[in-house]
């Protein structure tokens, strides 16, 4: 596959990107600390929203659905900004790996599907499975597209 050496696929860390490769040895405590702090903020926000909007085992997990779609939209925006203009070395670890990674959750997604199936609500489970999958991909695309367009229009794009 003809991938340019710096083409980023993984927003958490991509060793094809020289800055990512070097960051952990350059300042390990700052990087891991930023990720942990961001993760705490993201996870607590998620827990707060999930507590405010609980769902029965047979119901549609709207809170987790909204959290995951919002997180995917925002990672699209964030990575477009990071790719277009110079940002501090801890912006991606804190906001991307930490806050958004801690905010969104894959484990609750699959376990909620499993619970709904076990509770006899197979159609709700299937609807949730498909809606999150399609919604997450549309959200990341929309976030990336909107941010990229805005960055170009405001003329702040460096590349």
């Amino acid at each position: 596959m003809a991938r340019p050496p710096e083409f980023r696929v993984d927003p958490d860390v991509d060793l094809h990107v020289p800055a990512d490769r070097a960051e952990l040895t350059a300042h390990p405590a700052a990087v891991l600390g930023a990720i942990a702090a961001g993760g705490v903020l993201g996870a607590l926000s998620r827990a707060g929203i999930q507590t405010a909007f609980p769902h029965p085992p047979t119901g549609f997990p709207w809170a987790t659905f909204g959290i995951n779609l919002a997180g995917c939209l925002l990672i699209g925006v964030l990575m477009a900004v990071i790719g277009a203009r110079p940002t501090g070395p801890l912006v991606r670890p804190f906001l991307g790996v930490g806050v958004l990674g801690g905010f969104t959750t894959f484990s609750a997604y699959v376990v909620d599907i499993q619970r709904a199936v076990a509770a006899g609500a197979a159609s709700a489970a299937l609807a949730y499975l498909a809606a999150t999958l399609v919604g997450a991909l549309l959200a990341v695309w929309a976030g990336d597209a909107a941010a990229t367009r805005l960055l170009v229009r405001t003329g702040r794009e460096v590349r």
């Binding site: 083409f7 927003p11 996870a43 998620r46 925002l74 969104t104 484990s107 997450a136 990341v140």
Partner: peptide, 28 residues
């Protein structure tokens, strides 16, 4: 539930990373 489920598993796993990777793989 709070420590292992909501905190650890929730922060270990991610949809944002998964969706962005999928977008980028499509782009290339």
């Amino acid at each position: 539930t709070a420590l292992v489920g909501t905190g650890f598993c929730g922060a270990l796993t991610t949809w944002s990373t998964l969706s962005y990777e999928t977008l980028r793989l499509t782009r290339e």
